Amino acid sequence: MTIIGYARVSTVEQTIDLQRDALTAAGATTLYEDKASGKTADRPELLHCLKALREGDTLVVWRLDRLGRNLQDLIRIVGELDERGVKLKSVNESIDTAGPTGKLVFHMFAALAEFERGLIRERTLAGLEAARARGRHGGRPPALDAKQRKAALAMMKNRDMSVAEISRQFGVSRSTLYNIAAKST
C-alpha cells in the first residue's frame, strides 16, 4: 500500500512547494506534478500518476480542485479510483475515501452534479421551446437568400456552368448547392 501524491499549479509563475510539502507531510513517497491550467485536459503527469496507482494505494492531493478540471471530471476520476480499489485523500478538505464519511461526501457530490446537469438540460429545453414559440429557430442562417437559391438552382439545371463554378460565384461550398437542390425536389 503506497501513498502517491499529485500536485498541480496553473501557471509557470506559481510555485508547487506548498503542495509538495503538504503531500510529503501526508505520507506521499512518490509525487507527480503538473504545471497546467485546470481547464486543460492535457495533464500528462496526472495520467502517469493514475497509471501508477494499484489496488490498496492512496492518492493524496492538496485540494480537490487540483485533481479535477470540474466537478464532473473529479467525480469521474474518483469513481475510477474507487473501482480500482484506490483511496483518495484531500489534505485541505480533510476528505478520505477510505472511510464511510469520505465516500458519502463523494456520493453527495455526484448527486449534486447529476442534479445540476438535469437543471441545465431543463433550462436549455425550455429556452429552445420559448424561442420556437416566438418563431425563432436555432442554427446558422441560410447561406443564400431565396432569390440567390432560385438563381443557383436555375444555373445548376441549365448546366452551362459546373457546380464548382456556381459555388465560387455565390461564395458557398458545393455541398451547400447540392443540399439546396435536394431540398427543392
Score class of each variant (00 low, 15 high):
Y6Q: 10
R149E: 14
G85N: 12
F115P: 11
A130T: 03
L53F: 03
P100S: 04
V78D: 09
D160E: 14
S184K: 07
R149D: 07
G79M: 12
G56F: 02
K89A: 10
T185R: 08
I75Q: 06
E116K: 14
Q148W: 03
R84K: 05
D145T: 01
A98Q: 02
A36V: 09
M155C: 13
I16G: 10
S37A: 08
A154W: 03
V60Y: 01
L177V: 01
N179V: 08
E114S: 12
H107S: 12
D65T: 15
P142H: 03
A151C: 06
D42Y: 08
T29S: 12
A151F: 02
D145W: 10
M156T: 00
Q169P: 08
L104H: 13
D21W: 08
E93F: 03
F106Y: 13
L31M: 15
F170C: 15
I95S: 06
N92K: 07
I166C: 00
R123A: 13
Q72L: 04
L50G: 03
A98N: 05
A28W: 07
I16D: 09
T101P: 06
R54K: 11
E80Q: 13
G138A: 14
E45H: 11
M156K: 00
W62I: 00
R121H: 14
L67Y: 01
T40S: 15
T176E: 00
D65S: 10
R43T: 00
G171Q: 01
K87A: 10
G102E: 10
K157H: 10
N158R: 13
Q14G: 14
P141N: 05
V163Q: 12
A182Y: 14
H107L: 11
H48F: 07
T2F: 10
L46C: 02
E129Q: 11
R43C: 04
V86I: 03
A133W: 02
D82F: 05
L144K: 06
L71G: 06
G99V: 12
A151L: 00
L177T: 00
Y32L: 02
Q72T: 11
E13M: 13
S173I: 02
R123W: 14
A28L: 10
G127W: 05
W62C: 04
R63H: 11
G102R: 02
I95Q: 09
Q72N: 11
L31N: 14
A131T: 12
L50K: 09
V105A: 14
L104K: 11
G138M: 10
D73C: 13
D57M: 07
Y6F: 08
R132D: 14
L88A: 15
S173C: 00
F170D: 12
Q148V: 02
V12F: 15
A25F: 14
T11W: 08
R174E: 04
T2C: 09
E80P: 04
H137N: 06
K51W: 09
A131Q: 05
A181Y: 04
G127H: 13
G127K: 12
R136V: 10
